[in-house]
Simulated assay, not measured.
Amino acid sequence: MNILASILIGIVQGIAEWLPISSKTQVLLASHYLLNLDVSIAYTFGLFMEMGSIGSALIYFRQDVKRVFHDRFLLKFLVIVTVITGIVGVPLYVISDKLLQNAYNPSIPMIFLGLALIADGIYIRYSRIKTREFRNLSMKEMILIGIAQGIAALPGVSRSGMTVSTMLVLGINPEDTFHYSYLAYIPAAIGAVGTTLLFTRHHVSYAVSLIGIGGLAIAVITALLTGLVVIGFLLKIAKTKRVYLIDFMLGGIAIAISALGLIIG
């Protein structure tokens, strides 16, 4: 059991999940180089590591989770977004497993995501769109958010980047955008872990055999604790009115990490 590698992978997952830099890609790269995993196996392992981030979200948003079945609008939002995410995301996950076996570089789509975030920031900065509350979302807009989240099943595409940028373009105020984007992550991530175990459990078994049950537990707990800190930090940032600066910053981070991935890949 490599304790240091487990901690590092957990930290990577705990930070990257909540930033628009594709945690799957970052964990893929980390486990590929730290554990010498094959790229397709590392991708599967990265999805399995979502368990730590699910724990972070369940703890941080526990009050929202408690009121889901007492809040019809919130329940409607989560059901629609999750169903559409599954319809779009499961086929893309199966395709991604094949792509990664054929030297697909996940850093490439992340570059385009970074550019999209910067474009999103420019749009928000100069379009003077009026922001509105989360509860003003229409069913069509919920479906659009679900499609955006489902596309994130592709390696190199960030779930938070897709959902946050989509909701911001729709005019949802930044605080609601980050809050409910992260809340929508919980059922989607549970589905992603289930999909991983259903379609590629042999990859998971191989990765776990290398890192060990103890190492996996350390990685997941580290991801959970790191995620709690990062979620709190980002939600505080989201309260600022200059959200376009967040897009510029995160878009730049995504492009920089993508470029690094292309260089070392």
Rank of each mutant, 00 (worst) to 15 (best):
residue 97 D to F: 06
residue 35 L to F: 02
residue 97 D to T: 04
residue 79 V to W: 05
residue 10 G to T: 04
residue 42 A to P: 07
residue 76 K to V: 01
residue 129 I to G: 03
residue 255 I to H: 14
residue 237 I to N: 14
residue 108 I to T: 12
residue 164 V to W: 03
residue 162 M to A: 15
residue 219 A to F: 01
residue 129 I to A: 04
residue 164 V to M: 14
residue 218 I to A: 02
residue 87 I to A: 11
residue 245 L to T: 10
residue 16 A to F: 04
residue 49 M to L: 14
residue 221 I to F: 08
residue 50 E to G: 03
residue 66 K to T: 07
residue 124 I to S: 01
residue 115 L to C: 12
residue 115 L to D: 07
residue 63 Q to I: 00
residue 193 V to Q: 03
residue 149 Q to W: 14
residue 4 L to G: 05
residue 46 G to C: 03
residue 73 F to K: 12
residue 190 I to W: 01
residue 170 L to Y: 06
residue 16 A to R: 07
residue 207 A to D: 02
residue 107 S to W: 14
residue 65 V to I: 14
residue 139 M to P: 00
residue 59 I to K: 02
residue 66 K to P: 00
residue 157 V to I: 15
residue 250 L to D: 10
residue 43 Y to L: 07
residue 242 R to D: 12
residue 11 I to N: 02
residue 99 L to W: 11
residue 14 G to E: 02
residue 234 L to W: 05
residue 109 P to A: 08
residue 121 G to L: 13
residue 104 Y to P: 01
residue 214 G to A: 01
residue 107 S to T: 12
residue 1 M to L: 03
residue 53 S to W: 06
residue 42 A to C: 09
residue 170 L to E: 07
residue 146 G to P: 13
residue 108 I to A: 13
residue 216 L to F: 01
residue 10 G to N: 04
residue 121 G to F: 13
residue 11 I to E: 05
residue 215 G to R: 04
residue 8 L to A: 15
residue 168 L to V: 11
residue 95 I to K: 12
residue 208 V to I: 13
residue 99 L to T: 10
residue 204 V to G: 05
residue 53 S to I: 07
residue 101 Q to F: 10
residue 159 R to L: 10
residue 182 Y to Q: 09
residue 56 S to I: 00
residue 107 S to L: 02
residue 25 T to M: 09
residue 177 T to C: 13
residue 56 S to H: 01
residue 96 S to Y: 09
residue 173 N to D: 15
residue 210 L to S: 01
residue 138 S to H: 05
residue 71 D to E: 08
residue 119 A to T: 07
residue 70 H to D: 09
residue 249 M to T: 15
residue 5 A to T: 03
residue 176 D to R: 03
residue 228 L to T: 00
residue 183 L to T: 03
residue 222 T to F: 09
residue 246 I to Q: 11
residue 42 A to D: 10
residue 170 L to D: 12
residue 82 T to A: 08
residue 164 V to P: 08
residue 167 M to K: 11
residue 227 G to S: 03
residue 181 S to G: 15
residue 59 I to C: 02
residue 131 T to G: 02
residue 32 H to V: 07
residue 261 G to H: 11
residue 173 N to A: 06
